[in-house]
């Protein structure tokens, strides 16, 4: 579903991402870990089509990244609030469905509003949302069209414990339904749901490694993270 080869990104002389390669098959979940500023969010921004790579290529569902097909096949949760301040929650979901060219989305939207506890605010402008509510809405926008590739950047940031559980369930369900999922997070307890883990080392990517192997070798993902991020 996602095939990344030699991805690089720099701003002037400042290198953010250097020669990153990995693949994610349908029905698999990859967790990208690493310290702040190591390039995780930049990598997802490139893969979502929001910014361009300085070098390297990536294919989404066999099509070049950035193409209309790739954009429609990708559900993206940015690491920002990611909402339009003057649109209501319901309008956000409708816009996301339209831009994904989704046909039957209303039932799914209603389910996501319910599960992500957005009923009380769905008719309010998103500018009035709390940070956690904005993150939940972003999650719903990524999931409403059942995109086969999900790029999820820090989905648990600012979300309460119940919300973390719900988002975890939704990601697992999406994977079970056949979606390829790329997740970044600093919540290593939540990252264990991933099938594979890759860790950024000074803008280079180590891995991916099977999560089970890392846990057997290091005991915890925190120990694996410390070892791999600071070799």
């Amino acid at each position: 579903m996602l095939d990344v080869r030699g991805l690089c990104r720099s701003y002037g002389d400042h290198v953010i991402v250097q020669d990153v390669s990995f693949t994610v098959a349908p029905g698999r979940m990859l967790a990208l870990l690493g310290p702040n500023g190591c390039g995780k969010s930049t990598t997802l921004k490139i893969l979502s089509g929001a910014i361009e790579a300085s070098a390297g290529t990536y294919l989404v569902d066999g099509q070049p990244g950035g193409s209309d097909h790739a954009r429609r096949a990708t559900g993206y949760v940015p690491d920002t609030r990611g909402v339009f301040p003057r649109l209501t929650g319901g309008e956000h979901l409708e816009l996301a469905a339209r831009l994904h060219a989704a046909e039957s989305w209303k039932g799914r939207a209603a389910e996501l509003i319910d599960r992500l506890a957005l009923e009380e605010v769905v008719d309010l402008p998103a500018g009035a949302y709390s940070h956690g509510q904005s993150r939940r809405l972003s999650m719903a926008m990524a999931l409403v069209a059942a995109a086969p590739l999900l790029l999820v950047d820090e989905p648990f940031d600012g979300v309460d414990p119940d919300g973390v559980d719900t988002i975890t369930e939704l990601l697992v369900e999406a994977r079970t339904a056949g979606a390829a999922v790329v997740l970044t997070t600093h919540l290593l307890d939540a990252a264990v749901i991933a099938d594979d883990v890759a860790v950024f080392q000074h803008h280079h990517l180590a891995g991916p490694y099977p999560t089970g192997d890392l846990l057997r070798e290091h005991g915890t993902l925190k120990a694996a993270w410390s070892r791999l991020a600071n070799p």
């Binding site: 921004k45 993206y76 920002t80 990611g82 301040p85 500018g127």
Partner: peptide
């Protein structure tokens, strides 16, 4: 006018 959604929109 796009707020933080500008980044999301650029991908869509």
């Amino acid at each position: 006018y796009d707020g933080g959604a500008a980044v999301w929109l650029l991908g869509k």
